[in-house]
Amino acid sequence: MGNSGIRSTRRRATLAVSAALVVGAMVGGVNAPSATARTPAAQTAAASRHAAPTYQVTSAALTSGLYQTAYSQRHDDLWVTAASGTTSQLLRVDPRTLKVEKTITPPVTDAATGAVEAVYGVAVDDRNDTVWTTNTRNNSVAVYSQRTGKHLASFAGVGHAREVLVDEARNRAYATALGDGSVVVYDTRTLKEIRRVHVEGSSPAGLTVDRRTGTVYVTDLSKERLIAVSPKASVEPRFIPVAGGSLLDVSLDRTGRTAYVADLKNGRVSVVDLRTGTTVRTIDTGAGTLSVATDPRTGLLYVGLQTSGTTKVVNPNTGATVAELATGAKTNHVTVTPRGVFAVDKSGPRGSGLPDSIHRITFGR
């Protein structure tokens, strides 16, 4: 079977898995059914059918210094960044087997030491068949070909580049420059920088996009707020206060009207109404709340906790913890995909060279 046949088969399998996830997650989750049976036998059968889902975690060691992941629907691949010491790798991983399919070494930036353009943040652009990375050590953003792994471009002058996202519908990529208070905007077709949104005194960190409106929401690590960046250059940023400490990550609900903000300092997730600009509630999730991702099918949150090395499944409507799953010594990033939920950890001691792990969370019965 040729590559196109393999990809086609994997895409069909992805759809099947996605359908299974919907069924499993809807049971006992935010959208759980509440049907009442009429007889004891029917009640028993209903209880069996509507029992809360169990979660299965499959883990694999990859390499040292794992940082973030991003999923490609086009190729059914998972892209993983890793940086440790003077080394760095961009990995293409099979989301079914967790085996590395391809290892890409970034360009060398220092011939004397062999240091490379280390990759940290990552986003996939399926429309233009590319992968975008932030290269924190040398303050840049890079683009690679998904198909060949070729390094296509690098953009300098992004102070402490932390995260990157792609808005495929508008052919835009956004990167946070934590060190110089800017959000940098790129054209994903021409691979050119087109705009910088600078907010004096800010420390842009995590970001997400409302796919319908194109508005990008950015956590400000130093000012306890979200920065709303319009896709229109003529519109000034809007500021939404979020009481908390170290606001590192943000995710939206399926409507784009509610934001969930990870507060590392206070160990919680803040629920923010974006229309009114108010914090509706806070959910205590635990020390080291570093990453948050929303499952658009169920509304459940997956919260990565670096201190406990776990990922919590949380109902944002009630604040209840649905499950807490072991995902490595120091869970660093969580991604929701049709293949399941993926978490990467930093389990190996710094400088030890020991491999960190990737974990796939799926539903079972």
Rank of each mutant, 00 (worst) to 15 (best):
T36R: 11
G179K: 08
T278H: 12
T58W: 00
L178C: 01
A169V: 07
V23R: 08
I358Q: 07
A83E: 06
S72W: 06
G364W: 05
A41I: 14
L274P: 07
L152K: 14
A323S: 05
G299C: 00
V250Y: 08
R254I: 07
V242E: 15
V242K: 14
D295P: 14
H160F: 02
T294K: 13
H359K: 02
V229E: 07
V116E: 05
G277P: 04
Q146T: 03
S34T: 10
T362Q: 01
S308R: 09
V116C: 10
V124C: 02
R147H: 04
A70H: 05
L274A: 06
V22F: 06
I104H: 05
T327S: 15
N317D: 13
T258D: 08
A142D: 12
R195F: 11
R170L: 12
T285S: 02
R281D: 11
A153L: 05
V269A: 03
A123G: 05
I104L: 10
A262S: 07
V197E: 02
P338W: 11
H359V: 04
T318P: 06
L152M: 08
G267M: 07
T327Y: 15
S246P: 00
D210S: 08
T105P: 00
N3H: 12
I104Q: 05
R350H: 00
V22N: 10
A20K: 01
T310L: 10
A326N: 12
P107M: 11
N317C: 03
A262F: 03
L178E: 11
L305Q: 15
D220W: 15
T54E: 03
V271Y: 07
V322R: 12
T188C: 08
R268V: 01
R137M: 09
T282P: 00
E224Q: 12
R297A: 14
D77V: 04
R92L: 04
K312S: 15
L91H: 06
T255Y: 08
M26G: 13
G309C: 09
N139Y: 10
S59H: 11
I194H: 04
S4Q: 11
K330Q: 08
A19S: 15
V271Q: 07
R74H: 12
D76Q: 13
V272K: 12
G149M: 11
L21Q: 11
L252Y: 13
I358R: 01
I227S: 07
Y120S: 06
V197F: 04
S357W: 02
N317W: 01
Y144I: 08
R74S: 02
L226N: 10
S59G: 03
G181F: 01
G353R: 05
T58C: 07
R195M: 02
I227T: 10
V164F: 01
G157M: 00
V80N: 00
L248E: 15
